[in-house]
C-alpha cells in the first residue's frame, strides 16, 4: 500500500496553516558565573535539545590566560559560538585564543563554526568521529533547531590534543584523553584552581545520554577522573559539583541502566514497555531522566536482544 506523491501533496495542502507556519529563532544570551580564579562557568539548560532552548543545553567554561581566553566547548551553532566569544571578551577582557571541543556531540561541538579552525583543538578520536557522523548530526540539528542553526557549517578541529600536561598562556593544564561517553572524550584539569572540566563523562542532576556510549569504557574513565584530586568539577550538563557527588551519581545511573536493560530483555519486555519502567526514587533529582532512559533503551535494546535471546532450533522440513 504505497502512497502516491499526488495523495501526499493533496494532504499537505490540506494541513492547517498554523502547522506549517515558520518559526524564528530567538537570541542566545549565555551568562558566565565566576567559579574560581580566572574561571567562569556558562550553564546550559538542563533539558533535551529543543527549538525553545536553541540547543544551548551543554555547559561551557571560560579560562583567562595571558595568551587569550580558553573556551571549553563552543556551543551548538554559529550564533551560539559567537555569543560565547562575545561573553568571553566581556568577562575576561581578552578574546578567545583557544577552543577545546570535548567530544563530537553537536551541543558541544558545532559552535566551533564561529572560530578559526586552527584555534579549535580536540582529541584525534573526536575529529575522526566528526568526519564520520558530522553530516548526519548536522542534518538532525537543522531539522530540530531550524533557524537557530543558520550559517552553521561543520568545522573540524585542526589542533590535536594529547593526554598529559599542557601549558597555554602561562596557565597549566592536565589533559585527559578518555572515552566511553563517545569514542573520544576530553577532560581538562586546571592546575591553578583544581577545577576538573569533565565534558560529558560527568553529568550532574541531569540524566546522562548514551547515543555513542560504551559503558565499560565510560566506567573506566570515571575511575580515572575520581582518582584525580580536584576541588571543583564542572560537568558537561547540570550544576557545578562542589562536593564530589557528580561522578558517583553518573556511575550510579550507568550501572542502573545497564542492569535494568539486561533485566528487561531477559524478562521478556518489549522495547516500548521497557521505556515505561519506573525510575528509582534516588534519581528523582535528575532532569530529563525519562527522556534519557527511553533514548538508552533505543541505543542498547536491539544489541542486548541479540546477546541475551537464544537462537531458535531450525526446523528442517
Amino acid at each position: 500500500m504505497m502512497l502516491t506523491r499526488r495523495a501526499m501533496l493533496g494532504a499537505a495542502l490540506a494541513l492547517p496553516v498554523a502547522a506549517r507556519a515558520e518559526q524564528f529563532a530567538g537570541r542566545y544570551e549565555p551568562r558566565a558565573e565566576p567559579i574560581a580564579d580566572g574561571l567562569w562557568m556558562v550553564r546550559g539548560a538542563d533539558a533535551p535539545i529543543e527549538f525553545g532552548n536553541g540547543g544551548a543545553i551543554a555547559n561551557s567554561a571560560l579560562i583567562a590566560t595571558e595568551a587569550g581566553t580558553v573556551l571549553f566547548d563552543p556551543g551548538v551553532s554559529l550564533t551560539h559560538g559567537q555569543a560565547l566569544a562575545a561573553l568571553a571578551l566581556q568577562v575576561t577582557g581578552i578574546p578567545v585564543a583557544r577552543v577545546y571541543v570535548s567530544h563530537l556531540h553537536p551541543d558541544h561541538a558545532f559552535g566551533a563554526a564561529a572560530f578559526d579552525p586552527w584555534i579549535v583543538h580536540a582529541l584525534p578520536a573526536t575529529r575522526k568521529e566528526l568526519e564520520r557522523d558530522g553530516e548526519g548530526l548536522s542534518d538532525a540539528m537543522y531539522d530540530l533547531l531550524a533557524d537557530w542553526m543558520k550559517g552553521t557549517n561543520l568545522v573540524l578541529p585542526l589542533g590535536d590534543v594529547a593526554a598529559g600536561d599542557a601549558t597555554f598562556g602561562g596557565r597549566d593544564f592536565r589533559m585527559f584523553a578518555l572515552s566511553g561517553h563517545s569514542g573520544g572524550d576530553l577532560a581538562l584539569l586546571d592546575r591553578r584552581t583544581g577545577t576538573l572540566i569533565a565534558g560529558d563523562l560527568v553529568f550532574h542532576d541531569r540524566a546522562p545520554s548514551t547515543p555513542h556510549a560504551d559503558l565499560p569504557s565510560w566506567r573506566a574513565a570515571l575511575d580515572v577522573l575520581e582518582a584525580t584530586p580536584h576541588k571543583l568539577l564542572l560537568p558537561g550538563h547540570g550544576p557545578l559539583d562542589t562536593d564530589h557527588t557528580a561522578i558517583t551519581q553518573t556511575r550510579d545511573w550507568l550501572d542502573w541502566i545497564d542492569a535494568t536493560l539486561r533485566k528487561a530483555v531477559a524478562g521478556g519486555l518489549s522495547m516500548a514497555e521497557a521505556g515505561d519502567i519506573a525510575i528509582p526514587g534516588r534519581f528523582a533529582r535528575l532532569k530529563a531522566a525519562r527522556y534519557e532512559w527511553q533514548r538508552s533503551v533505543s541505543h542498547f535494546y536491539p544489541g542486548l536482544e541479540e546477546e541475551l535471546l537464544p537462537r531458535l532450533q531450525e526446523i528442517r522440513p
Binding site: P48, A272, Q294, V297, S298, P302
Partner: peptide, 16 residues
Amino acid sequence: IEMPIIAENQHAFPVA
C-alpha cells in the same frame, strides 16, 4: 498504544 516520547532512532521505533 505504548511508545517512547521521542523517536531516538527513526529506523527502529518501538510500539506496543
